Amino acid sequence: MLPQLTRALLVPVARLAFRTVVEGREHVPREGPVILAANHLSFLDSFLIPLVSPRRVAFLAKAEYFTRPGVLGRLTGSTLLGLGAVAVPRGEHRAAQAALETALGVLREGRAFGIHPEGSRSRDGRLYRGRTGVAWLAMASGAPVVPVAVLGTDRVQPVGARFPRPGRVTVRFGAPLRFETPAGSAARARRAATDAIMAEIGKLSGQEYAGCYNELSAGQ
Rank of each mutant, 00 (worst) to 15 (best):
Q220V: 15
G174K: 04
S185L: 12
R155Y: 01
P117I: 00
F173D: 01
L9H: 04
L2C: 11
V34M: 01
T76S: 06
T153L: 06
D45E: 06
L41A: 13
I197Y: 07
Y65C: 09
T194F: 11
E200D: 08
D195Q: 13
A192E: 14
G84A: 07
R111N: 08
G119I: 04
W136G: 00
S120T: 15
G91P: 07
A103Y: 00
G91K: 12
G114S: 11
S42R: 07
A193Y: 01
T153A: 07
F18W: 12
D45Q: 07
P147R: 09
Q157D: 13
R19T: 01
A140G: 04
L5W: 10
V146C: 04
T102F: 00
S122G: 05
L151V: 13
V57M: 02
A189K: 14
V34C: 08
K203S: 13
Y128E: 01
G142T: 12
G77K: 00
I197A: 05
F173A: 03
W136S: 03
E92C: 03
P144I: 04
E118A: 08
R188W: 14
V146I: 13
R30Q: 14
A8N: 02
A95K: 10
V88Q: 05
C212N: 14
A85V: 13
F66E: 11
R30F: 02
V52K: 00
D154Q: 13
A196C: 05
T20Y: 02
N39K: 00
A187R: 15
F43T: 10
V150F: 11
V134M: 02
S53H: 09
Q220D: 12
G206N: 02
G174A: 12
P54N: 06
I49H: 13
Q97C: 00
P50A: 08
I197K: 00
S120Q: 15
S78M: 15
M198I: 14
A210F: 08
L48T: 02
R15A: 03
Q157F: 01
E208R: 14
V148F: 10
F113N: 02
R168N: 01
V52R: 02
A8T: 00
H116G: 01
G73D: 09
S120G: 05
T79Y: 09
R15G: 14
V150K: 01
H116Y: 15
H27P: 08
V145H: 12
A189S: 14
L83W: 02
L177C: 06
P69S: 12
L36P: 03
A161I: 00
A187P: 07
R190C: 12
A112W: 05
V57D: 01
G206Y: 10
V171P: 03
L44P: 12
A138M: 06
E31I: 03
V22G: 09
I115A: 07
I49E: 11
V86R: 10
A99V: 06
